[in-house]
Write a protein that binds this DNA or RNA. Structure first.
Lengths: 153, 153
DNA sequence: CTCTTTCGTCAGGGGGACTGACGATTGATT
DNA sequence: AATCAATCGTCAGTCCCCCTGACGAAAGAG
């Protein structure tokens, strides 16, 4: 039924980013599930990525993740219910909630870093270490350019 | 409030893909809105990317996009209501719906390709044409590796 | 001490994906 | 030719994850 491999048209840069990104995400979150954390979903990385060692305020997490505090609260509540995170009243500010990782949450962070590194190593084995390194460098420059634009905005 | 630029830890490959991808998406869909198509959202690209010149069946679209037919129907219905797509009964199969682009939809596809090309050109201006070309090639190889794995699965 | 700002929450909504069940149609197998 | 399984699209319901608006409580500026 017209399921031929597509006219082999030049792929857009968007597709070239999306496909690896999705594949990587499947690897990482599949691996996380295999390690006993099936409840962690991609959206949760917004928390794990931005939480500070000594704990972070909800508002700070939201701002760093570029989302509303309501959305961040939704994610944090889920992680708290699952025991990855705990939130205590900030002793220095009666309004604030200080979100910190539990031991379980620390393990997730470690697993996320490991799985990411493993995936990158597999990529290097697949397309060549040199090419993978150049890919990383090019992406780093792109990201740097984006952040520069954002600051200049 | 602890909003320092982060410990400058080595970024994960996931972040290095996600940030450019999101930036690119903002550029492309912002540009589309500026050209008079504010109703087109990223999810709609699943339709525009996979629709065949002579029209495609809903089921075929869903399969190529890797989603359920219900989800694809949701997207197609939206595009049809906005006049980008039209769906007629397939003369060769009384069950099927043949989805085709309208003239308006064709313009969107053209705009999407243009905006993508513009963004890539801007990237080349930003990080260097050579580096951008190498980045594209590395991503193409990665995508090819992914598809090979998928077929071998 | 008042007034403004900030913190987190409550309430509601929408987009975009999913599963399960189903009627209509098709096409293959007797 | 009749039956029966597979396929097409839809209906109904759900979930996740993001949003906006409004608000009480607490902090901080004047």
């Amino acid at each position: 039924m017209d399921d031929r491999p597509a006219p082999e048209r030049r792929q857009t840069l968007g597709a070239l980013l999306r496909l690896p990104y999705e594949a990587l995400q499947r690897e990482v979150y599949g691996g996380l599930a295999a390690r006993g954390f099936p409840e962690i979903r991609p959206a949760h990385s917004a928390v794990f990525r931005h939480i500070a060692p000594g704990g972070s305020r909800l508002t700070a997490l939201a701002e760093r993740a570029g989302m509303t505090k309501q959305s961040m609260a939704y994610l944090v509540d889920g992680l708290e219910a699952a025991g990855h995170v705990r939130s205590l009243p900030d002793p220095r500010d009666g309004r604030a909630r200080l979100v910190t990782l539990t031991a379980k949450g620390e393990k997730v962070v470690a697993a996320l870093l490991e799985l990411g590194a493993e995936a990158e190593a597999r990529l290097a084995g697949r397309i060549g270490a040199k090419r993978a390194a150049r890919l990383r460098r090019a992406l780093e420059e792109w990201v740097a350019a984006i952040e520069q634009d954002r600051r200049a905005r």
